[in-house]
């Protein structure tokens, strides 16, 4: 459905930028992805990772320096208008709709821009108004809608020509919890009912876990991992025990580390603000008792013991950190 091959983008390479010695920024570095029809695909990454650049290349708004991207078999560079007919997009930080126009006028206008006219467009708009819950708001100017409903309208407008692919760049950015959840549920419904391919760029892990079948983690313009979302987030569902004890002298800490390694090899010892934190990613009682006996034997001064789940964000950060360590120090400068 969407095939991205070796896409590279370096900003600051044009003649004027070179003349004023603008810093080169490598936004994408030989990125390759294949997104299958009907799946919800997540592009995850920190700010400045290159997600928006990739989305904008797919929208024909940014020209890549190398590589190719095809949408429904159409090359975005050579067959731009045919490729664009296959996708609708909601871009980050944009209004995406005209606030002075009503809901229906926005749909009509963008429908025309996408080449739809007459009864076909009217039928489509009537269906969209009903499906997106805009039936009673059709004559309402977009400016009068709440932020969440404006975002809902932007998604509605992106689907006005019934494209097989929906691109969403940070769709829940700036929304309150309720609106974000509503948008999330809407995207899920669109993907499930309509069989749309959804490409979702976000740095909200919960959103990605909820919606995506597969995810790619991007950082500094490189794809660090592209895998099944379930597999990536599996670590996050691992429960663990966390014991906090008072600060230990270095030799006692080292002894504890060695002994704990033989009793509970998966345990991780860290220090944090005059405390020692021992995380045991193993919820069996025996392992817990072994650890507690050891801490008592070592004369540790207990502060707390808790049981919890790993943070989704931690899983994401682990992937990013591992990528950066493999990459070595440096920014996104080319």
């Amino acid at each position: 459905m969407v095939v991205v091959s070796d896409i590279t983008k370096v900003y600051g390479q044009d003649a004027v930028s070179r003349l004023i010695r603008r810093r080169l920024v490598k936004a994408l570095d030989r990125v390759s992805l294949e997104i299958r029809g009907g799946e919800v695909f997540g592009l995850l990454g920190p700010n400045g990772a290159g997600k928006t650049t990739l989305i904008k290349i797919l929208c024909g708004l940014v020209l890549p320096d190398g590589g190719t991207a095809t949408i429904c078999g159409f090359d975005i560079l050579r067959q731009r208008t045919r490729a664009l007919a296959c996708l609708g997009a909601v871009l980050e930080g944009n209004r995406n709709v005209y606030w002075r126009l009503t809901v229906k006028e926005n749909l009509t206008y963008f429908g025309h821009l996408k080449g739809w006219i007459g009864r076909r467009l009217k039928r489509r708009i009537a269906w969209l108004l009903d499906y997106f819950g805009f039936k009673d708001l059709a004559r309402e100017p977009a400016a009068n809608l709440s932020r969440g409903w404006q975002q809902r309208l932007a998604i509605c407008v992106a689907l006005v020509n019934d494209p097989p692919i929906l691109l969403l760049d940070e769709p829940t950015l700036g929304l309150d919890v309720e609106s974000a959840r509503s948008v999330r549920d809407l995207v899920q419904r669109v993907a499930a009912d309509q069989g749309k391919t959804v490409i979702l760029s976000t740095h909200h892990m919960e959103l990605a876990r909820h919606l995506c079948r597969r995810v790619a983690v991007i950082d500094r313009g490189r794809v660090l991992t592209c895998s099944d979302a379930h597999a990536l987030f599996q670590g996050a569902s691992t429960q663990s025990y966390r014991a906090r004890v008072a600060e230990l002298p270095p030799e006692a800490l080292e002894r504890l580390r060695v002994r704990l390694g033989s009793v509970a090899p998966k345990a991780v010892i860290g220090t944090d603000d005059h405390e020692v934190v021992i995380t045991l990613p193993d919820v069996r009682w025996e392992s817990l008792f072994d650890m507690l006996s050891l801490l008592r034997d070592e004369g540790c001064n207990f502060l707390s013991l808790s049981r919890g789940e790993s943070d989704l964000d931690e899983v994401f950060l682990d992937v990013v950190r591992a990528g950066r360590e493999a990459d070595g120090p440096g920014g996104s400068g080319a």
């Binding site: 929208c59 024909g60 871009l91 944009n94 995406n96 005209y98 606030w99 821009l113 996408k114 080449g115």
Partner: peptide
Amino acid sequence: LGTFEQKYMAS
């Protein structure tokens, strides 16, 4: 306004 890019994606 943030509507220009949508225009650019016309047919």
